[in-house]
Design a protein around this nucleic acid. Sequence first.
DNA 1: TCTATTATTCGCAAAATTACGAACAAAAGT
DNA 2: ACTTTTGTTCGTAATTTTGCGAATAATAGA
Lengths: 109, 109
Amino acid sequence: MAEKKYCIKTETLAGFAKALGHPARIAIMKFLAKQDTCYFGDIHEELPIAKATVSQHLAALKDAGLIQGEIETPKVKYCINRENWQYAQQLFSEFFNMELCEKSGECCK
Amino acid sequence: MAEKKYCIKTETLAGFAKALGHPARIAIMKFLAKQDTCYFGDIHEELPIAKATVSQHLAALKDAGLIQGEIETPKVKYCINRENWQYAQQLFSEFFNMELCEKSGECCK
DNA sequence: TCTATTATTCGCAAAATTACGAACAAAAGT
DNA sequence: ACTTTTGTTCGTAATTTTGCGAATAATAGA
């Protein structure tokens, strides 16, 4: 499907960024980071959107690899995928810490 | 338009992430970071997409505040908006460095 | 087995994104 | 004035995203 027009690191970083490109998904990640319990219902309560929509956002984050889920019937528990979280952190860090060319960033007013 | 359902920092971070959520836009930012000259034509040459599409991506990055443009007829020069770039860096840094709850990230296999 | 709880999937609609070629605008040079 | 160069805007199409309610699945408990 993805025809890889760009280098793999660029594609991967863009993928993480895309997954984080919605306030509900940022809110979910922040919530998961600080909670002991991370049941679907608790996440849903935090957000001003329908549960079907929450489920969709969780699926998006899961597809991106940023979270993972576990069934604990009748509930579902979600948490951050630490390995990929760390990788995303590294890619963003590299991206934002690349040294800017002297002239770049000064050429425009 | 934006009805602010989430806290401002969350919205802002999501906005930056969304702007970076496409490989062409990541590629543009990387290119701008390392180039002395940052004319539209040079950016277009780097990318495997039509100029109209490049223009759209540049507009998206501009709307997000990550870059700025300057006319130098007949060319147009683009560069990173350092102030907002730094703010984005800070927001991402805070986000990725928020301490994860002990249990969070360990509750799911 | 029936019921209650929980979360996903389905079906749908509206809106936004991505992409392109063609048309257009602006200014410099002839 | 005309032409060339450069990049944006327009018009359009295909796809994806976002969102919701209703239907569904899965399991525990009565």
